[in-house]
Design a protein around this nucleic acid. Sequence first.
DNA 1: CCGAAAGCATAGCCATTGCTATGAATTTCC
DNA 2: GGAAATTCATAGCAATGGCTATGCTTTCGG
Lengths: 157, 157
Amino acid sequence: MMASGKGKPSGKPSLVDADTHVESFRQTRTNRRTELVEDYVELIDDLILDGGEARQVDIVQRLGVAQPTVAKMLKRLVNDGFIQQKRYRGIFLTEAGKALAAKSRERHRIVERFLRAVGVSEEAARIDAEGIEHHVGDETLSVFKAFVERNGRGDNT
Amino acid sequence: MMASGKGKPSGKPSLVDADTHVESFRQTRTNRRTELVEDYVELIDDLILDGGEARQVDIVQRLGVAQPTVAKMLKRLVNDGFIQQKRYRGIFLTEAGKALAAKSRERHRIVERFLRAVGVSEEAARIDAEGIEHHVGDETLSVFKAFVERNGRGDNT
DNA sequence: CCGAAAGCATAGCCATTGCTATGAATTTCC
DNA sequence: GGAAATTCATAGCAATGGCTATGCTTTCGG
């Protein structure tokens, strides 16, 4: 019944205690589940901003996956209340979708600019930011943001 | 000729071109597939270093998932040649496993210390590093490493 | 206006990663 | 040495995210 207590005061504690460890992994698993949704919503928002509309075909081309894969995910996004779909007329974000997109875009932007600011090349920053953004918590994000503002490179925006 | 070219020189290019975009997403998807393997191998290595042995039960407790989930993944790791399993006697890393673990641990360590070095709290650094590490490419990693060495905080190691 | 092309939906398959329930094997403890 | 507890394996289910193949609709070009 003691459950987690499990002392085992080993000689070299390179490991944090089990419960703490669990928390990190659990958080990471949670993030992994929401990554794709964020990617889609963010991309849709980008497409609308960039070209005025977001079509399934565009998403297919941007993500580099098969069309039915996108179709299935869009159905999920409709169910989750992030988008509206009008056949042959494009995809539109709901209010919830817009909010999520704005948040994701902001995070993405900060992460990418942060990487650039510490000296990462443009290409690597683009690629790595795509994966990293989903795992940056609020605290880390604000640290990144402050860093970028402090070491502002004369970039756009 | 047709394929990707797709000009559409829109007014506000907040978007990179499609092929470039695809590359980022593709890389991210690839990373996502190897994350779990790395997590497991790294954890197993930690457990062995810390307590002399890694048992399935320990992994279950550390990851916070159900035991059959771990059992299934371990079977996969055996097939992939990263570990050896001896029933009721623990889990052992093969040479390939040790190599992967060393690489993962190093990356993890650098990312976490980098986060600490830029001002992220210990707890947030621990949690975020767990997710970020898998998306840090070689270039970014070496930038992080250099940063840590330059701004060395009197931490351990 | 009508046929071809483009865009989208659907069906059906596979792999992955999680779960619960259950049973077998091994250790441990008396 | 045998019963109990621990440890592990296996079966079976669900959700997610990918794919190919196929067919329906809408739009576009002549």
